[in-house]
């Protein structure tokens, strides 16, 4: 397997706690750009740096339209916008209609990642009570990218990871701690 150039993470219900844990568990030399869609209420204005911590020296920022994707950063989709990546490895935002009842939608991010990064994308689906992310993870896997899904037993809300696993049966599964370990290994490879 080639070292993925970026890692895309989708989380919904229960996601903030899962992400906090995932980011804390990353090794301190983790550098891979991480791009996160966490379903939020549309009017939520969160400052990621206040919510998330890591042992690694990472910047937690909201993804900005047209900003280049860089190592050492964890980017979060702003509330009420779809987040996409362009082939130029920069971000794009859109107010297109909801996908899977969600904006931002994990499918929208993952499908754009599959097109822009091809086999160099890594997709991770965490806890959630809907089916967003399944089609997107399939798109990443179809391009030869690396797919990971949180163990349904480990997830606070198992529907989203189990839907993703149904769509991509070959996906690697694991607890949050195991996913963090795997991502840290990938980042070093």
């Amino acid at each position: 397997m080639r070292r993925p150039r970026a890692c895309f993470v989708g989380a919904s219900a229960g996601g903030v706690t899962a992400l906090q844990k995932l980011l804390l568990e990353l090794d301190d030399d983790f550098r891979l750009p991480m791009i996160v869609v966490q379903h939020l209420h549309p009017s939520t204005n969160v400052t990621p740096s206040l919510i998330y911590r890591s042992r690694a020296r990472l910047s937690f920022v909201e993804a900005e339209d047209k900003a280049p994707i860089e190592e050492g950063h964890v980017y979060f989709a702003p509330a009420d916008y779809h987040l996409l990546v362009e082939k130029t490895f920069r971000f794009g935002l859109s107010s297109d209609r909801h996908v899977q009842h969600a904006r931002p939608s994990i499918d929208v991010l993952f499908e754009s990642a599959a097109i822009a990064y091809g086999a160099d994308a890594c997709g991770v689906v965490l806890t959630g009570a809907n089916q967003d992310g399944a089609a997107g993870l399939r798109a990443i896997a179809d391009e030869g990218g690396f797919a990971m899904v949180q163990d349904a037993a480990d997830a606070e809300f198992p529907l989203m990871p189990s839907s993703a696993l149904k769509a991509v049966p070959s996906a690697r599964t694991g607890t949050i701690a195991e996913i963090a370990k795997e991502l840290s290994r990938i980042s070093r490879s």
Binding site: L84, K87, G92, D96, V108, S112
Partner: peptide, 9 residues
């Protein structure tokens, strides 16, 4: 136009 969202449309 920005390609990624245009391609979705």
């Amino acid at each position: 136009y920005a390609e990624a969202s245009l391609d979705r449309r």
